[in-house]
Design a protein around this nucleic acid. Sequence first.
RNA 1: GCGGGCGUAGCCAAGUGGUUAAGGCAGUGGAUUGUGGUUCCACCAUUCGGGGGUUCGAAUCCCCUCGUUCGCCCCA
Length: 439
Amino acid sequence: MGTIQAIRGTRDILPEEVTYWQTVEATARQILNDAAYREIRTPIFEQTELFERGIGEATDVVGKEMYTFADRGDRSITLRPEGTAGVVRSFVERKLFGAGNVQRLWYTGPMFRYERPQAGRQRQFHQIGVEVLGSGDPRADVEVIAIATDIFRALGLQNLRLDLNSVGNSEDRDRYRRVLIDYLTPYKAELDADSQERLDRNPLRILDSKDPRTQEIVADAPSILEYLGDASKAHFDRACQLLTDLDIPYQLNPRLVRGLDYYTHTAFEIISDDLGAQATVCGGGRYDGLVEQLGGPSTPAVGWAIGLERLILLLQQLHDLQTPPLDFYVVSRGTLAESQALGLARGLRHNGFSVELDLSGSAFGKQFKRADRSGAVACLVLGESEAAAETVNLKWLATGEQETIAQVDLRSMASQLRHQLQKHRSDQSPTVKSSASSV
RNA sequence: GCGGGCGUAGCCAAGUGGUUAAGGCAGUGGAUUGUGGUUCCACCAUUCGGGGGUUCGAAUCCCCUCGUUCGCCCCA
């Protein structure tokens, strides 16, 4: 094939779909603003070492999924596979930690992981995420979860569930790890191959294996929640209580393990059953050690990321969003009329109307056909006789009524036109869908 | 990285070895030389993702390759 195509695992978001993205972005921005989160924009590539140290050398993301290359100065560069490491790097480098200050940040943008594409998974994908840095209070965990659920609710998504777990601190995990190895070792021969490999290296991961026999074995395994230290347990219990107080339903999932090393204490996922195998739309948790790990002061933190492609997949199942309706379609014929039409369209736009100008130069019949399909409420007609008389014909497309207006009067009629448009729009057939903002 | 399905026009598609590659939607032109949504007519793939092979003959069979899709691993 001679034509150049988009790189595997990437795709174009075409105008029709962009409406969904804009809806999501506007909704999230509003909710985050109202909660005093401020946007941060960090580079989409960083030193490879940032991710190696931040996410963990042993993770799959670092081990086999990073887009890493040497730049012309022979520095090792990596396209960010997630957002938290860059935000924390910025927090440390730019010293955003004031004494006792809590930073509430959010970000959005593309992320890159070299994986085999499948439903809800691409090599370039987009996330929107939040990070609260500087608070170890369980209220921060719950605030962040509440914001995520508010975003989903504002978008009208309902069939979602919140899975919650605590992975404790490193002592808790070490203790539990030993218990788990003791429990699993007698079953070793029965575990799936991957899980056998992981028994020594990363036994917690075995908990969420999809292998049926492994699942049976794991079902009776001791729960990490029973091996949390007093402080970890108090933190988690408080977080659960606060969620209950806010009427945010959740289910404890002691087998929920997250794949990035930095997580501590609260871990959660928001999951949809309408997405196929890649069902997590939002994942996050606490990461109390990461800031220090990356050279900053010891700073507790909690955050999440929403996968926008997955979210939009769900939205598309729910709503039929269409581009905002057009006010006027301008039809013209003849040199003088065409130049007047260009100016008229511009003048109307300056008055706040949306106006599409027909550029085809084809016969009026064809231009009207296009006017019809454009979804415009009204049509402005400028032929040679109108041009000579400096008038314009205003035609209401639903009824076919036409009136002649002097071009000079068009501007002063703006508020009158607005009312008429409103009226005709409500008369129009119900094929005109609500605009994005009404979701 | 591993395993299965698929790949005919902008979109949905019929065709499963015999040659002009159905049909529908969209698009373009016309009936209607300045007035749309209906209708009617015409046009719209030297070619079946790409390359190679088998054959007198390939969209149809074989190989390679690219893409896509569903799953595994893992994650958003």
